[in-house]
Design a protein around this nucleic acid. Structure first.
Lengths: 211, 211
DNA sequence: GAATCGCAAATGAATATACATTCATTATTA
DNA sequence: TAATAATGAATGTATATTCATTTGCGATTC
């Protein structure tokens, strides 16, 4: 569900770049506005204003308001997944992989606070109003964790009685909830890096194979 | 923000009961409808229909749509807190307390699926459209965890380098996220009781004082 | 015991508002 | 000049909230 224009007509390179520019500009504006107001309270005219385009222009690039949200999921998480997978593939040790995942997740939360808020909120809300949209991107992201755990079990680093399907959610949930509260009041007792560290440590000594 | 009627005139006992009945009836209907559609997509007339009252009747008991949501938080979480605190006070061992909290949380999720969905969703969304409403109930609930951890540290059962403020969120987040996914597809590989168990185990061996 | 009264509670049609979306018009570009 | 892109005012819709009216019920009178 992204750009409407490119459907039938191939574009010259310059044009494609220009169009993508405006598409991205709207996405970035929408992330800001959704983060500030939430999806439902955000008006198209807010997004248009933030993106410095006319209301109608948005409909040249997106089919409707939902479509903007879905595009945020697809495009932004998509990039994040590619990036973290690449980083993790450079590691050998499952323990370090998990620490890396946590650190990377929290870094993203810090660096892209608005995006994090949107993803967090709408992740919950979404199943209600876009029943048809299965959030495969998100599933893919969390599955990175279960694959690490599975690998660790094969290497006898992690306990075999841990269910990867539960552990992945527990780990992700721990990070996500800690991040959520951190966003709400960044004047906290702890830094987000500390939090990532603590959570990794607790979790790792929780699933470590005793020997 | 609850009942509007009782403001000036004291009521006979029977009447008070009748009114509370209808108030509750609307709350329960709203929980169902909000769970099904989400707060924003839920229409007042949906709630009225579910509660078998007229649209206008709802405004005799609540000031507006938000007020219904806030009342759900206040009243329903309120009861849950009282209940879990009582259960936990009957325990001595911090480890058992944590297990009890997890088991109880998951039992609630299972038994009151609709309520869980509403709390989970709107917890995230709420800060956007009810900025002024500080969700003290929720904070109180999660603080039960940090108090257990703190106590365990005093008794030398839990590691002292664990920050209770981080750990409480990590633990709650782990439960909450696992529950969320479980709700979405209850035909899962694991039961919710297993999940509670796993999470407790992982977390406990993660924060245990080595000796 | 029936008839009447008065008040609180409930009703639901009407109102008002907010906003997503459209599209006739204008600007830009090649 | 023709085609494409952008504009923003106008439209239509959806629905939260209101309020004039009706209903239900206990108390009071005869």
């Amino acid at each position: 569900m992204a750009t409407k224009t490119t459907e039938n007509t191939p574009l010259s390179p310059e044009k494609a770049i220009r169009i993508q520019d405006k598409h991205r500009k709207i996405i970035l504006a929408a992330i800001k506005v959704f983060a500030r107001k939430g999806f439902f309270s955000a008006r198209i005219s807010d997004i248009a204003q933030e993106a410095e385009v006319a209301d109608g222009t948005i409909y040249l690039y997106f089919n409707n308001k939902y479509d903007i949200l879905i595009s945020i999921f697809e495009e932004e998480i998509g990039k994040i997944i590619v990036d973290i997978k690449e980083r993790i593939n450079q590691e050998e040790d499952p323990k370090r992989m998990l620490r890396l995942f946590a650190a990377n997740h929290m870094r993203l939360v810090k660096e892209r606070k608005d995006l994090s808020e949107v993803l967090q909120m709408e992740l919950r809300q979404s199943n209600k109003f876009m029943r048809e949209y299965r959030n495969t991107r998100f599933i893919e992201y969390v599955d990175i964790i279960s694959r690490i755990i599975h690998k660790g079990q094969e290497l006898n680093v992690f306990r075999k009685d841990v269910l990867p399907g539960v552990a992945k959610r527990a780990f992700f949930g721990a990070l996500d909830e800690t991040a959520r509260l951190w966003i709400l009041s960044p004047t906290n007792q702890y830094t987000i890096e500390e939090a990532a560290n603590q959570i990794s440590s607790i979790f790792l000594s929780g699933i470590e194979q005793a020997n």
